[in-house]
Design a protein around this nucleic acid. Structure first.
Lengths: 127, 127
DNA sequence: CTGCATCCTGGGCGATACTG
DNA sequence: CAGTATCGCCCAGGATGCAG
């Protein structure tokens, strides 16, 4: 018998997991973005043309601690969103760049950022 | 002398606060959305045509506890994103509805949800 | 400059039990 | 059914210090 491509379950179009499940696609995205510094770092890298050095980032993002920066970068690296490049050794020169995957995630992020900027007057009332 | 409308500071177009500041518009939005149940509840209300009863919500969102539901709803209410309507008294019948402001925030949320669904294959690699 | 380890606190959030 | 109050866990994330 012919059965639908999505393993036979009846889910809303496009979904491969229940739309309200903890692990539904949208939630994954939001969970990623909800880490305090993830979006800022992605955005900063993006604005720097896709790559930036740690010191640079630290200076660009007031409030960001060295610990959280490294930690967040490691996390993003593990997820394949940024890549680490060592250029020299003494003194160490490092640069982090957005991977193709990272560039991809920039899209919805910038959309959201854009919306936020455009509707700043609204956001003033929710925080 | 004529001065620019945005109080004279030199910020990127559209911004009224530094793009990297903790309280920049995009960050406010992300902070709101990062609360564990906010987006799910907004989304659920949206799908229910803008209004829903507590029990309904509880049943629709597996994993959501009564406490967190109420707490989140109270929070959203305080921010003017949902409104509370008591219909009867015994037994109590209550309905929560999205306000105009709430409807407004649905826009970027649904965008993000849409993007997430469309790129589920990518999201599988980040979580 | 870059990066890791350690200590510590706040509060988000879940479980449970009780009122009307 | 709707809502509140309490207890307690867990961990994100900030501060500080050391190492290459």
């Amino acid at each position: 018998m012919t059965h639908s491509p999505d393993s036979g379950s009846s889910l809303p179009a496009g979904y491969r997991t229940a739309p309200f499940a903890e692990d539904c696609a949208p939630r994954k995205l939001l969970r990623l973005f909800s880490a305090k510094w993830v979006t800022m770092i992605l955005h900063a890298l993006h604005l720097s043309g896709g790559g930036s050095r740690p010191g640079q980032l630290l200076r660009n993002l007031p409030g960001l601690s060295k610990k959280m920066m490294t930690q967040t970068l490691r996390d993003l690296e593990a997820k394949g969103l940024v890549s680490r490049h060592v250029m020299a050794e003494a003194p160490p020169v490092v640069e982090y760049r957005l991977t193709a995957l990272g560039q991809c995630l920039i899209e919805p992020l910038e959309q959201l950022y854009g919306w936020g900027v455009e509707h700043a007057h609204i956001l003033d009332r929710i925080d």
